[in-house]
C-alpha cells in the first residue's frame, strides 16, 4: 500500500504485536489517551480522545482525589482479516489525574460523544472566611 504522504516513514511498531492481541484472554495494550484541559469561569473542562470506546466500555471514577478514566475498546474486525497496513493498534485507554480540593467532586459531570469524553470539573464554591470568636478570659 502506498501513501501519498509520509511515504518513507517507517511503521516500526506493527511487527511487535501478535495478531491475537485483541483476544479476550490475551494481554491487552493500554494507551495513554491525548487530552485537552482548559479553564472556564466555572472551573476546568477536560477532553480525552477515546476512539472505539462507547458508554458501556467507559469507566470513570473519582476516589481519594484521584480521577481515573478507563475506556475499553471493542473491535469487530473479523479474525480472518489480514492486516495490510497498520498505523494504530487495538488497546484500551487509561489515564488518571490528581484533583485538588478546589474541584467540587460532587458536581463532576461527564459525557461521551463520538469517542470523545468531556469531563466538567467545577470549582468548589469558595468558603467565606469564618470569624473565630475569641472569648475573653
Amino acid at each position: 500500500m502506498a501513501e501519498s504522504q509520509d511515504l518513507n516513514q517507517p511503521d516500526n511498531s506493527s511487527s511487535m504485536i501478535p495478531a491475537s492481541e485483541d483476544g479476550a484472554n490475551g494481554p491487552r495494550l493500554l494507551f495513554n489517551p491525548p487530552i485537552d484541559i482548559y479553564e472556564t469561569p466555572d472551573g476546568l473542562v477536560l477532553y480525552a480522545d477515546l476512539p472505539g470506546v462507547d458508554s458501556e466500555g467507559l469507566d470513570l471514577q473519582v476516589q481519594n482525589n484521584r480521577l481515573t478514566l478507563f475506556g475499553r475498546v471493542t473491535s469487530d474486525v473479523a479474525e480472518s482479516a489480514q492486516m495490510l497496513h497498520q498505523e494504530y493498534h487495538f488497546g484500551d485507554f487509561l489515564r488518571s489525574f490528581i484533583l485538588s480540593d478546589e474541584v467540587d467532586h460532587d458536581r463532576i459531570q461527564a459525557k461521551l460523544t463520538n469517542g470523545v469524553l468531556r469531563v466538567e470539573l467545577p470549582r468548589a464554591p469558595r468558603a467565606n472566611p469564618r470569624r473565630i470568636e475569641v472569648s475573653g478570659g
Partner: peptide
C-alpha cells in the same frame, strides 16, 4: 488555582 491537578499520576506503561 488547580495546581494539584498537574500532579498527574504517571503510569509505568
Amino acid at each position: 488555582p488547580f495546581r494539584d491537578l498537574e500532579r498527574e499520576v504517571d503510569r509505568l506503561l
